[in-house]
Design a protein around this nucleic acid. Structure first.
Length: 571
RNA sequence: CGGAGUGUAGCGCAGUCUGGUAGCGCACCUGGUUUGGGACCAGGGGGUCGAAGGUUCGAGUCCUUUCACUCCGACCA
């Protein structure tokens, strides 16, 4: 491709809302263009080329693993989502609309319902199983707060795959196969990543794993062990039960006057105890289907923090939101002095499972200005669940090593669904005995457009993008310093043609611009290799440049074609 | 959802307080010079000032309404 014919609107200036490297460089490099609406982008020729590269890697590996590509209808009848029960559950991120006949439709962020519908119409026998179908199509998710360019857009390209099995064992076999396939995909793309245990979120189902590209700018906090390969999203991470070295306070079971002592810090100072022995009561409003909601009290140790996703799962709510003091008082609760003991009836309480039977605790008195000491939770009737967040320095449940936090970008997520969708949607098959059974399912996603952002987050420098070999829009960038110099231009043309003849994708900068401008564009766009034909051609020399580290080597001009071929074909 | 802020040329912004011919930089077009680190000179094109209503002889500017977008927050009772 000739640069002079390519639409690449590179800019010197950074858009004012861009903060992440990937967002800045993808826009400045002319890969994508903001559509003015939030979270919507056009892919320009360079961006589209990268997208196709990434998409092909995904497709090749999936096809190798026996998956089959399909393309589902973009617009989904809402009735399918009502059948599965997700129409309410998915919340506002689901874009809903009506056609001229007032029928409800959705633009699906994921297509379990649609795929199940496809399969239940055409698969009837165990002989047709297993089956793994996928598509790579646009998805829409009406994000609360789209940001970070392609990282969290509202419209995005995603690969979503679904597998169907006659038995749970076979589904688990496929789940493992997909884990291996995903690892191959991300490795081919040149990414450093980690597979972690995850929460299943609105998709539902049991065991799920996320594929996290490690990057400081990642939106997800992941917990990793320094001693073994344990890794988990903070939303699902577990730890060995904490022990406290400080002695338990030995106080009588009584009500104590504690004016203006309302925070954990205040209590620690007031009673001179380790926060481990305090009960922290966090009130949240849990939202359910059909607009129902209730206030729930989550009780954890003062030394812990509430993990909202775990808490939400514990009460099987769609979402948890904050409640203000007025709402608490209306419900008969006392902000600052709440506790699970002696509550007005009808308030739902969830207690962290490690507090079952705990004694010598201090908690609120459910009365302004009073706390209770010497409290025991022995025999307290409540829901006991794991609702706390693992903290840095906690102990790994698997090996006893030290756990620490790191940041990751979620680029893939695989789920063991079981019969979560096949059951309600009546997706059944006849087994060897002629008995109808719901199919065991798995579901597997990859954020294809997000991968572009993830690659740049992990591979860039202060000057611009550094694409990996498998993702680069072109393999080689040829820069002719001065196109009015006939010898320079002639060599450029010759090299350009030779590379094309070898099937190497090459970008040839034949523009009339000055040297500096062309180099800036090269560095910004980030094609892995370049040949600079300039001044030293009069001495019979050109430069071979590697974008990573901007390493420059002088090469004899009459050998450059051979050298370039060797370097590029070795990949 | 809570708080703060911004809407003026493709992009980045000034002008609004104090109403009076719509501006600057980048980008773009023409001509010329220049060619190893985002060049220079000269000339030029491009705007329903987010939208609607109001006040006024006159509104980008003042008033009302509305829409959109951005940023921060949405664990520590």
């Amino acid at each position: 491709m000739r640069f002079s014919r390519l639409l690449v609107p590179t800019t010197k200036e950074t858009p004012n809302d861009a903060t992440l490297a990937s967002h800045i460089f993808l826009i400045r490099g002319g890969f994508i263009q903001s559509v003015g609406g939030s979270g919507l982008y056009n892919f320009l020729p360079l961006g589209k080329r990268v997208l196709d590269k990434v998409r092909n890697v995904v497709k090749e590996e999936l096809d190798k693993a026996g998956c089959q590509e399909v393309s589902l209808a973009f617009v989904t009848p809402a009735s399918l989502w009502q059948e599965s029960g997700r129409f309410e559950k998915y919340g506002k991120e689901l874009l809903r609309f009506r056609d001229r006949k007032e029928n409800d439709f959705v633009l699906g962020p994921t297509h379990e319902e649609m795929m199940v519908n496809l399969v239940r119409q055409s698969v009837k026998s165990y002989k047709q199983l297993p089956l793994n179908l996928y598509q790579i199509n646009l998805k829409f998710r009406d994000e609360i707060r789209p940001r970070f360019g392609l990282m969290r857009g509202r419209e995005f390209l995603m690969k979503d795959g679904y597998s169907f099995h006659a038995s749970e064992e076979d589904m688990k076999r496929e789940f493992d196969l997909m884990e291996e396939t995903y690892k191959r995909i991300f490795t081919r793309l040149g990414l450093e990543f980690r597979v972690v245990e995850a929460d299943s979120g609105a998709i539902g189902g049991s065991g799920s794993k996320e594929f996290m590209v490690l990057a400081g700018s990642g939106e997800d906090t992941i917990v990793v062990c320094e001693g073994c390969d344990y890794g988990a999203n903070i939303e699902a991470a577990v730890r060995q039960e904490k022990v406290c070295e400080a002695p338990a306070p030995t106080l009588a079971n009584e009500k104590v006057h504690t004016p203006n002592v309302t925070t954990i810090e205040d209590l620690v100072a007031h009673f001179k105890v380790d926060p481990y022995y305090l009960l922290k009561t966090v009130a949240m409003r849990a939202l359910y289907d059909e607009g129902k909601s209730e206030i729930v009290l989550f009780v954890i140790r003062g030394s812990d923090t509430l993990q909202e996703v775990k808490a939400c799962n514990a009460v099987d709510a769609n979402e948890l939101i904050e409640v203000n003091d007025e709402e608490l008082e209306e419900a008969g609760l006392t902000p600052g002095y709440m506790s699970p003991m002696g509550l007005p009836s009808g308030v739902r309480v969830v207690i962290d499972e490690t507090l079952k039977g705990a004694s010598d605790m201090i908690c609120g008195g459910n009365e302004v200005g009073y706390h209770m000491t010497g409290v025991s939770l022995e025999g307290v009737d409540a829901l006991y669940e794991d609702i706390v967040a693992v903290q840095e320095g906690d102990t790994c449940a698997k090996c006893g090593g030290r756990l620490r936090y790191t940041k990751g970008i979620e680029v893939g997520h695989i789920f063991q669904l079981g019969t979560r969708y096949s059951q309600p949607l009546g997706c059944t098959f006849l087994d060897e005995n002629g008995k109808a059974k719901p199919m065991e399912m798995g579901t597997y996603g990859i954020g294809v457009s997000r991968l572009l952002a993830a690659i740049i987050e992990q591979h860039h420098d202060e000057k611009g993008c550094i694409w990996t070999e498998a993702s680069a829009p072109f393999r080689l960038h040829i820069i002719v310093s001065n196109i009015k110099d006939e010898a320079q231009l002639a060599l450029g043309e010759k090299l350009y043609e030779a590379m094309q003849a070898k099937g190497i994708e090459v970008l040839f900068d034949d523009r009339k611009d000055r040297f500096g401008a062309k180099m800036k564009d090269y560095e910004l766009i980030g094609i892995p290799h370049a040949v600079v034909i300039g001044k030293k051609l009069s001495d019979g020399l050109v430069e071979f440049v590697t974008r990573e580290g901007l390493v420059k080597e002088e090469v004899a001009a009459d050998e450059i074609i051979t050298v370039a071929e060797e370097r590029l074909c070795s990949y």
